[in-house]
Simulated assay, not measured.
Amino acid sequence: MFDTKIAFIVRNDLPTWQRLNVVAFLATGIASAAPEIMGGTYIDARGRHYGNIAGQPMLIFEADLMQLQNVHQKAIERTLTLIPYVHAMFSTGHDEANRQVFRAEDADNMDLVGLAIRGPQKAVGKVLKGLALHK
C-alpha cells in the first residue's frame, strides 16, 4: 500500500514520559522532512474543522543504546531520512540549545535516546531487523 515506511526507535531504559516525549519530537521531524505524508483536514458531523495527521502508519520500536547506534549507522549507509534525539537534549529548554548539544556529540558514538527513520519499505525493514516493537 505504501512504498515508504516510517519507524521510531526509542531507548528501552527511559521512563515512559521521556519515551513519549522523544517520539512526539521525532514525529514532528518526520512531518517536516516529508510533508507529503500529511493527510487532509478532519471534519466532524457538525462541520467543525480539526487539524490533519499523517496518512501513513508509523511503527514504534524499542532498543538499547547499542542497537540504536547500530540502526543509526545502517540508516546513514542507506541514506534514509534520519532524525536523531540524544540524551543531552533532555537538559535543554529550547531548539537552539538542542542543536548546540547535538553538535557537541561524538558523531560516531552518539548517546542516542531515539531515532526516526523514513525511506523505502525494504531498506527501512533491513535497518530495523531484529528490533522488537515497543511494548
Rank of each mutant, 00 (worst) to 15 (best):
H49E: 15
S32M: 10
P35F: 02
S32H: 12
T41K: 05
L80Y: 08
V86L: 08
E62Y: 01
M38N: 08
A33Q: 10
E36C: 04
P84I: 02
L112T: 10
I30W: 00
G39D: 08
T79K: 15
I30G: 10
Q69K: 02
D44E: 09
L65E: 12
D111M: 11
R48P: 08
G114P: 11
I83D: 11
P84Q: 09
D111A: 15
L59H: 07
R46F: 01
F61I: 02
F61G: 00
D106Y: 05
H94K: 03
Q100E: 12
E62I: 00
G29I: 05
D106P: 10
I53P: 04
H94W: 07
A54L: 15
R48V: 15
T92Q: 02
A54K: 05
I30A: 02
I83K: 07
Q69F: 03
G119V: 11
L82V: 11
D106K: 05
Y42G: 01
G51N: 12
E96N: 02
L68A: 00
E105N: 05
P57T: 06
A107I: 13
D108Q: 09
M38D: 12
A104S: 14
M89I: 10
A54H: 06
Q100T: 07
S91L: 10
V86D: 08
P84Y: 00
G40T: 13
L80R: 03
G93A: 01
S91F: 04
I43F: 06
I117D: 12
H94A: 10
T81E: 11
F102H: 00
M58I: 12
R78D: 13
F102V: 09
L82D: 10
L80H: 04
R118V: 04
H72S: 10
R118T: 13
I53G: 06
A34M: 14
H87M: 09
Y85A: 14
M110T: 06
P120G: 06
V101C: 12
